[in-house]
């Protein structure tokens, strides 16, 4: 996604980092790397997962996915818990590991080659088929519910992705703001350090549905 699509091409949320409390600043700046070696994912798993994450977020920038992958790896390595899962699904670290294998097997069945070697459209089609639970049959799906796999990959990706300060800048999010706070809240008002819209018009008026 090129930067041109944002309303706020000039805005960088990190310009305010010195206004943030030190705990918050530390948490956010760590997302820019460098990252320690992965603990759970193997290299092979990492490269498949990275491609899937990019499709899911519709973005290609490796520096952002370095952080996303690091965050997913840390989560899968930490067995504290995953809040909930359906009683038919295995624990998340098994779901992801076996799920990545199954996605590769599916690619081999459909296209005779590994997931990483098929075209972008074919990769996309495989992911889309998981969301609706209609991927071509392979025996693994009895252990790895397709929708649970899709939902898990998506949720593991989206939270770190939208925690990256580059993405915050693009969507015009003003950031943590403690201890400074926000004071100009009403329609048409903004605090002086907030993002200023540069591209006019409310884009994508065709995509609303009722």
């Amino acid at each position: 996604m090129e930067k041109g699509k944002t309303y706020y091409p000039d805005f960088d949320v990190l310009d305010s980092v010195k206004e943030w409390d030190p705990v918050t600043a530390d948490v956010v700046l760590k997302r820019l790397g460098p990252f320690p070696p992965l603990k759970f994912l193997t290299d092979e798993e990492e490269s498949k997962l990275r491609v899937i994450c990019k499709h899911l977020m519709y973005d290609n920038r490796d520096e952002i996915f370095d952080w996303v992958i690091h965050s997913i790896d840390a989560r899968l390595n930490d067995k504290t818990g995953e809040y909930q899962r359906s009683s038919k699904a295995p624990p998340e670290h098994i779901l992801v590991r076996e799920g990545l294998k199954a996605i590769n097997d599916l690619s081999r069945k459909l296209y005779d080659t590994d997931f990483l070697s098929i075209g972008v459209q074919e990769q996309f089609d495989i992911i889309a088929s998981l969301q609706v639970g209609e991927a071509a049959q392979i025996p693994q799906w009895s252990q790895i519910p397709q929708k649970d796999l899709f939902d898990k990959l998506l949720i593991l990706t989206v939270a770190p992705y939208y925690s990256h300060p580059t993405i915050w800048s693009e969507i015009g999010y003003g950031g943590p703001a403690h201890p400074r706070g926000y004071y100009r809240l009403e329609i048409g008002l903004a605090d002086p350090w907030e993002a200023v819209r540069k591209r006019e018009g409310n884009k994508g008026d065709d995509d609303g549905g009722e």
């Binding site: 699509k5 977020m57 995509d207």
Partner: peptide, 12 residues
């Protein structure tokens, strides 16, 4: 994917 990305660009 694209739908999500575009919807999120309208965050504000």
């Amino acid at each position: 994917g694209k739908d999500l990305r575009e919807k999120m660009l309208d965050f504000n």
